[in-house]
Amino acid sequence: MNNKVKPLTDEQIAAFHRDGFLIIEKLLSEEEVALVKEACLKDEVLMQSAMEMKDSQGRKTDLSLWNHPGDDIYGMIARSERVVDTMEKLLDDEVYHYHSKLSAKKPRVGGAWEWHQDYGYWYQNGCLFPDMASIFIAVDRCTKENGCLQVLKGSHKMGRIEHSFTGEQTGADPERMAWCMEKFERVYCEMPAGSAVIFHSNTLHGSEGNLSDESRWGLISVYNTKHNDPLREHHHPGYTPLEKVPDSAIVTIGAKPSEKTQKYLNQEEDDTSTTVDV
């Protein structure tokens, strides 16, 4: 059964601009979540391309990252009307696919993601404006115990702050972060599988390690706006028209994994900073 997601209300749009994030309940149906999980589990190309990202404690999270949405189930989700229309409504412009990634925290060993802003390093890619956002879709249920996404509510209004390396990740300036932790409310984005959180590129976010017996997989797609076409050629694409597909395409394509021709990013190809995620 195809999932029907209601258009955003004025109240939801206002909340996103006020808080810097918005949770969308039941973005994917139970059937669609099951298809994504099935595709991931049999996707040898995706798994073999995963980077092991270490946090400051040496714990590891597997991260697979690709620039262009294919004709697999991940591409159908990233190009679906329910997702693209939502991002365009929140960012008030035509959007294009900047990149997608699968963040997989294994039980008991999955690492943390340091506190950071995505625009803290996308700025270095030649994007003049922070008019960008990410959507994190819970493939597994997300809880405090398994390292759910955390955000600092309203922190996007500060603008970009300085970032530096922490372990193998890029983190926000520690002194500034200490002030931010006192100033802003910390929100744990606990969600059932299929729900999603959309967050602004300047929203401070991070997550803790997975200390539970459950996996915590998240499918993240990042969108840039047409008017923010990067002025610097780098490891993510410039403006590339996005071909939307009907929401029904997700179920129609089924548990189709990525093609062998899909290109995944290597850490060595990231020429602006160490890759970070949620």
Rank of each mutant, 00 (worst) to 15 (best):
N67Y: 11
W122E: 01
I253D: 11
D72M: 12
G120V: 01
A78P: 07
T240M: 08
M177C: 03
L35T: 10
G110L: 12
V36K: 02
P192I: 07
I198G: 06
K226Y: 06
F16C: 10
K105N: 04
A196T: 00
N67R: 13
I73G: 08
S195P: 12
C180K: 07
S221M: 08
S212I: 00
I137P: 11
A112G: 11
T86Y: 04
E31Q: 15
C148Y: 00
E268G: 03
A172P: 10
L152F: 14
E269G: 02
L22A: 09
E81Q: 11
M191S: 06
R18L: 02
K60W: 00
H234W: 12
L90G: 12
D43T: 06
G167L: 07
K226V: 14
S212Y: 13
L242A: 07
L265M: 13
H235G: 03
A34L: 10
Q169N: 00
E162H: 09
L211H: 13
H17I: 01
K263H: 11
D85N: 15
L149C: 08
Y188N: 13
G209W: 01
K60I: 13
S207A: 10
I161W: 08
Q124T: 11
P192G: 10
T203G: 09
P192R: 02
A178H: 06
Y239W: 09
Y74C: 05
H156I: 03
D72Q: 09
V84K: 07
L128I: 09
L152A: 09
T225G: 10
S221W: 00
I13G: 07
V45S: 06
K244C: 02
R18M: 02
E190T: 08
I24L: 13
G238M: 07
E25Q: 15
L8D: 02
M87F: 08
L91Y: 04
W66L: 03
F16I: 01
R141V: 03
A39D: 01
S195Q: 07
Q169V: 13
K244G: 04
N2P: 15
C40E: 13
M181S: 06
N67A: 08
E182L: 12
D43A: 04
W115S: 14
C40Y: 14
F184A: 11
R79C: 13
M47G: 14
E259C: 04
F165V: 13
V245D: 04
P246F: 04
V139N: 10
L265Y: 08
F16M: 03
Y119M: 03
A178W: 02
C180P: 07
R18W: 00
S64E: 01
T166S: 11
R79F: 09
D92E: 15
E52A: 14
K256D: 10
D19T: 09
E214K: 14
K37Q: 09
R232G: 01
D277V: 01
M47D: 03
K101I: 02
H205N: 08
R18Q: 15
L211R: 15
S221G: 06
E233Q: 13
L63Q: 11
K105Q: 05
